[in-house]
Design a protein around this nucleic acid. Structure first.
Lengths: 158, 158
DNA sequence: TCTGAAATGTGTTCAAT
DNA sequence: ATTGAACACATTTCAGA
């Protein structure tokens, strides 16, 4: 992960469909060199894939929520089963396993509030290991899609 | 958004760097047709971009957390200012504005627990509008990167 | 490791349907 | 809207530095 690799990673996060030639031009190496760098990054697992970002409203899934679950009893088997279950739900677009008052936080995207309500009642309430949940409707979700190593940046907090 | 568009969207979410020819072959149309479909989807805002997925550990940011913030006083101006502020923080990889007990939920990725602690103290505690926060360290985060319209799927909750 | 050049394959346009 | 064919351009390989 030298300077060139960091630049490649930065640019491909911003635009995964840039051509290899353009990418090579931007970082100042030959296309063949650039191609080999990208392949090495992929081989090493640094680049994990390339994904189109789709407007959730276009999928008729404009309503999002965070749902914090409490799991009981809190054994590995039970928590693994709960994670396995919620991961199969089509409404769920992300699963966080966390430490603290909650055990699992779901990021869900559904059509409307009615579907959200139905999902909570029909899919979560009936599971005995889900002892409780708190739902927070999301007004807005902004993601930073271009992540850099933090060490570069001012660590003083000023 | 007919059947062909849905297929395109599905495939590009799974692999954004697929060639247009291969994509055309998979959905059974000519490359020129496929190209025009993809362009139309982009023009209409359905496809919002293409992004490489990078391993956070490779960026030396293997520790993630959700940080739920309470903002006071809860006016539009204050909440907008808070969102604007947290969005500038390099540690923050996602910002959820939510309804409920919390006002903002941050998704952060840092090097280690020490950096997390420093971020909370140096960057959040000193902001007067941040009246309190709860931090949940993330053990695991799984995302579903291929989202489909929900209407296709069994709505009974069975 | 990087490069330039050759070969193979692809993106893109356009006239026709 | 979709197509096939043509052209320009890109990806990929590989021998040599």
């Amino acid at each position: 992960m030298d300077e060139l690799d960091s630049e490649i990673v930065r640019i491909l996060q911003a635009n995964a469909r840039i051509s290899n030639r353009e990418l090579a031009r931007m970082i100042g190496v030959a296309p063949s060199t650039c191609l080999e760098r990208v392949r090495a990054l992929t081989r090493r697992g640094v680049i994990r894939g390339y994904h189109a970002d789709i407007d959730l409203k276009a999928l008729d899934r404009g309503v999002q929520a965070l749902v914090a679950l409490q799991i009981r009893p809190l054994s590995r088997a039970v928590i693994d089963a709960a994670i396995g279950y919620v991961s199969t739900l089509p409404e769920v677009i992300g699963v966080f396993t966390v430490a603290g008052g909650d055990d699992i936080v779901l990021h869900v995207a559904v059509r409307d509030l009615e579907d959200l309500h139905a999902m909570l009642l029909d899919r979560l309430s009936k599971r005995p290991e889900i002892a409780g949940f708190r739902t927070s409707v999301i007004f807005e979700h902004v993601r930073n899609r271009v992540l850099t190593p933090l060490s570069i940046i001012d660590p003083s907090g000023s």
